[in-house]
Design a protein around this nucleic acid. Structure first.
Length: 415
RNA sequence: GCGAGUGUAGCUCAGUUGGUUAGAGUACCGGACUGUGACUCCGGGUGUCGCGGGUUCGAAUCCCGUCACUCGCCCCA
C-alpha cells in the first residue's frame, strides 16, 4: 500500500459528490418506476464465464479490462464490468423467463481496469434498464424515451444528442460484416495500425475510428443500411417512426456500433461534447440473442446503461442539503433538555442540528455554517419561564415560544 | 496498453537565471463580543513543495525513477 492514496481510478464520494450522484440515481429510479420498471440488484461479482462468453471473447473489456481473480475456493471470479450479463444470468437462474415480459432497473458500481481520465474511472457507477420478452420495436422506443425523460428531468438534455443505428438481425449483421471485411481487406495497406488489428478482431469497430485516413476509407465503405434484409429494415423504420411519434429528436449515425458482441438491431447512444473524449452518457441497444447464448430460452431483450459520474458532471450545480433547525442550549439545564427537544422535533419531521459543546457564539456560528434556518435557544432564563427563544437566522428576529408549542412554531421551517 | 502535460497550505494558485526563514486569497483557529451567527476589525501558517534517488556549497526550481491526476489515442458509461 502506497501512502494513504485510494487505488488508482477509484474515488471517494464525499457528501457533495454523493448528493450529485444521488440526484442521478434517484431521478432514474423515479422515472423507471413511472415506466413500470422494477428495481433489482445482482451481485457485484460473478463467475468469470458470465462475462467472458457474453461480451465477446475479443472485446477489450474481456481481454484486458476485467478485474478477475481466483477466490479461496478456486473459482475464477470477475467484478462486473457491466450489468447486462449479470441480469441475464439472474433471469435464467431464477427461472424468470416464465413470467415475461419483465422490465428491470438497477444501479451500482462496475469495474474496468482502464487508464483513468475525466469521466473514466476503474470503479464507476451505472444506471441500467433492461426489457425482456418484447420483440416489438415499441420496446426499443420505450427505453430510449425513458432515457430521454431521465436526461430531461436532470436538466442535461440540452447538452446531449441522441444517435441511433441498426445493426440488423444476425443474418444482416453477418452479411454486412463479410462485405465490410472484403472492402477493408482490399484497402488494408491504407488502414491505421489500430484498424488493421480491428479488421481481424472486430471489423465493425473500424467504422468508429478517429484516424483521418481511416475516416476517408470509411466514408466510401459499404453502408450498413444496404446489407439490412427486409425484416431488419422494417424493424429500424418502426423504431424511427416510434421516436418521431413521441417527438424525440435523433440522428441516424450509420457508423455507430456498440462495444459488446451481443447487440443486434437497434443501437443507440446519448452523447455530449461537454465531457471531452468520454462523450457517451447513455449507451445501449437490442440484444435478442444474449439470453439463449447464456443457456436460457430464446428471449428478445433491449436495454441501456448510463454513466452516473458522467451525468453527475453535467449537472449544473450540486444540490444543497436540507436546512436544519439548530438547538442551542446555554447552561446545564439547557444541555439536559436539548436532546429531548431535538428528538421530539425530529419525530415531527425536522432535521435538527445539536452540538455537544462550545460557547453560545460558537454554537451560533456552527448553526449558521450548516445552513440552519432557525436557532432554538435554551438558557436558564427561558427554562425558568417554560419557553425557548427562537431566532430566525435569515431575518435576525427573535420570538419567545412556550416549550409545548415549539413544534407548531417551527412548522414554518419544515419545507 | 501508447503519447504528452501537471503535482507547492483543507481549497484555488504565486514562487525570478538554483540562493538564505516558501507566499497570497479563501477556508480554518483564537480574540474584539464571559446570552447571539451571517457582516466588520485584530491576531495566528496549519506545509515530508506527491514520493524516492541524483547533481550542487546550496534544490520547490535541474536530472533520473516512481506514484497520482489531466489531455489525446485506445476503449466505453
Amino acid at each position: 500500500m502506497e501512502k494513504l492514496q485510494p487505488v488508482r481510478g477509484t474515488h471517494d464520494l464525499l457528501p457533495d459528490d454523493l448528493r450529485r450522484h444521488r440526484v442521478v440515481t434517484d431521478t432514474a429510479r423515479e422515472w423507471t418506476e413511472r415506466y413500470g420498471y422494477a428495481e433489482l440488484a445482482t451481485p457485484v461479482f460473478e463467475f468469470t464465464e458470465v462475462f467472458q462468453r457474453t461480451l465477446g471473447e475479443t472485446t477489450d473489456v474481456v481481454t484486458k479490462e476485467m478485474y478477475t481473480f481466483v477466490d479461496r475456493g478456486g473459482d475464477s471470479i470477475t467484478l462486473r464490468p457491466e450489468f447486462t450479463a449479470g441480469i441475464v444470468r439472474a433471469l435464467i437462474s431464477n427461472g424468470l423467463a416464465q413470467q415475461l415480459p419483465l422490465k428491470f432497473f438497477c444501479t451500482g458500481p462496475v469495474f474496468r481496469h482502464e487508464r483513468p481520465q475525466k469521466g473514466r474511472m476503474r470503479q464507476f457507477h451505472q444506471i441500467n434498464v433492461e426489457v425482456f420478452g418484447v420483440a416489438d420495436p415499441g420496446a426499443d422506443v420505450e427505453v430510449i424515451a425513458l432515457g430521454q425523460d431521465i436526461l430531461a428531468a436532470l436538466g442535461v438534455a440540452p447538452q446531449v444528442q441522441l444517435e441511433i443505428n441498426s445493426l440488423g438481425d444476425s443474418d444482416s449483421r453477418t452479411a454486412y460484416r463479410d462485405v465490410l471485411v472484403d472492402y477493408f481487406t482490399a484497402n488494408a495497406p491504407d488502414l491505421s495500425d489500430d484498424s488493421k488489428t480491428r479488421l481481424i478482431k472486430n471489423p465493425l469497430r473500424i467504422l468508429d475510428s478517429k484516424d483521418p485516413d481511416d475516416r476517408k476509407l470509411v466514408a466510401d465503405a459499404p453502408k450498413f443500411a444496404d446489407s439490412l434484409n427486409a425484416e431488419s429494415q422494417d424493424f429500424f423504420a418502426a423504431v424511427r417512426a416510434g421516436l418521431d411519434a413521441l417527438g424525440i429528436a435523433y440522428t441516424v449515425n450509420d457508423r455507430l456500433v456498440r462495444g459488446f458482441d451481443y447487440y443486434s438491431h437497434t443501437a443507440f447512444e446519448f452523447t455530449t461534447t461537454a465531457l471531452g473524449a468520454q462523450g457517451t452518457v447513455i449507451g445501449g441497444g437490442r440484444y435478442d440473442g444474449l439470453v439463449s447464448v447464456m443457456g436460457g430460452p430464446a428471449t428478445p431483450a433491449v436495454g441501456w446503461g448510463g454513466g452516473v459520474e458522467r451525468l453527475a458532471l453535467l449537472l449544473a450545480a450540486a444540490p444543497q442539503p436540507h436546512h436544519p433547525v439548530a438547538i442551542v442550549p446555554v447552561g446545564e439545564q439547557g444541555e439536559a433538555l436539548a436532546p429531548k427537544i431535538a428528538r421530539d422535533l425530529r419525530s415531527h419531521g425536522h432535521r435538527v442540528e445539536l452540538g455537544f459543546s462550545g460557547s453560545l457564539a460558537k454554537r451560533m456560528k456552527r448553526a449558521d455554517k450548516v445552513g440552519a434556518r432557525a436557532a432554538v435557544l435554551l438558557g436558564d432564563d427561558e427554562i425558568a419561564k417554560g419557553i425557548a427563544t427562537v431566532r430566525d437566522l435569515a431575518h435576525g428576529t427573535q420570538t419567545e415560544v412556550p416549550l409545548d408549542r415549539l413544534v407548531d412554531a417551527l412548522q414554518v421551517y419544515l419545507q
